[in-house]
């Protein structure tokens, strides 16, 4: 069992290295430069992929939260926690790349564009979720409480998106589209390919980080257990 999971990790690692370089090549050299926005548009590939993973990670948290509530199991609890930690990372990258892109194309660091604003709220929910996990107490109790919060958070995300979009359209009728690249009319096939390739690579990266994170967390638990045992033995 141990050997097998080690093999999967190694395989993923060696698959990821060429893929990341290939993605970089596709983004910066192979794909054409966008006519209106120029070279800064390249950040869009990473922006969209990271945003996708950020939301994916959050729904993973929701999924494992539901499973934790149905049957408390430390495995699900760990999965949800690691996914949230990685999610914070990708949400932060999404926000940063979004801001850089915003600066270059609309000359402003921040717009209340619904997707970007939802990402910001998502970031806060993630952080709140991690705070819940930092509570003191047995893991069963924390697992239950954090799972409950995770579920409520996941329910909230679509509503946030909807509310911000309505709010936005009421304020400024035309919103400069982002994300799916609706602004350019059609998307050129090489661009679409590059985008899909990027999304795939970053999703794979997420999966790899997830596996590694879970492994580390499990080790941490094993060490803690051993420590407790040793202390108990010393205490008599």
């Amino acid at each position: 069992m141990k050997q097998k999971s080690g093999f999967i990790d190694t395989a993923m690692f060696y698959l990821l290295i060429p893929m990341v370089f290939a993605a970089l090549y596709f983004v910066f050299i192979w794909s054409p430069v966008e006519k209106f926005m120029g070279a800064p548009q390249k950040i869009f590939y990473f922006h969209v992929s990271c945003a996708w993973v950020a939301f994916l990670a959050f729904f993973t948290v929701g999924y494992y939260s539901v499973r934790t509530l149905i049957k408390p199991n430390i495995k699900f609890h760990i999965h949800a926690g690691i996914s949230a930690e990685i999610g914070v990372l990708f949400t932060t990258i999404t926000l940063l790349t979004g801001m850089i892109w915003g600066k270059s194309s609309w000359n402003t660091w921040w717009t209340w564009e619904p997707r970007l604003a939802t990402t910001l709220i998502l970031w806060f929910i993630y952080v709140a979720y991690l705070f819940v996990r930092r509570m003191e107490g047995s893991w069963e109790k924390i697992a239950k409480l954090s799972a409950v919060f995770g579920i409520i958070g996941v329910i909230n995300v679509p509503i946030v998106f909807m509310a911000i979009r309505w709010w936005n359209t009421k304020l400024h009728p035309v919103v400069f589209g982002d994300g799916k690249n609706q602004d350019g009319g059609g998307i050129e096939p090489p661009m679409l390919f590059t985008l899909l390739f990027c999304i795939f690579t970053i999703t794979l990266l997420y999966a790899y980080l997830m596996r590694k994170g879970i492994e580390i967390e499990k080790m941490r638990h094993a060490v803690k257990k051993a420590k407790n045992k040793a202390i108990n033995r010393l205490a008599g």
Partner: peptide
């Protein structure tokens, strides 16, 4: 609901706003 959740923490007064405000954002808009 979140107050009941946060009360399990030692610093519940600080935790509650951090948990509550992001979830309230659509309602407040």
């Amino acid at each position: 609901f979140l107050a009941a959740l946060a009360v399990n923490a030692k610093n519940s007064e600080m935790l509650l706003p951090v948990l509550l405000l992001p979830l309230l954002s659509p309602l407040m808009i």
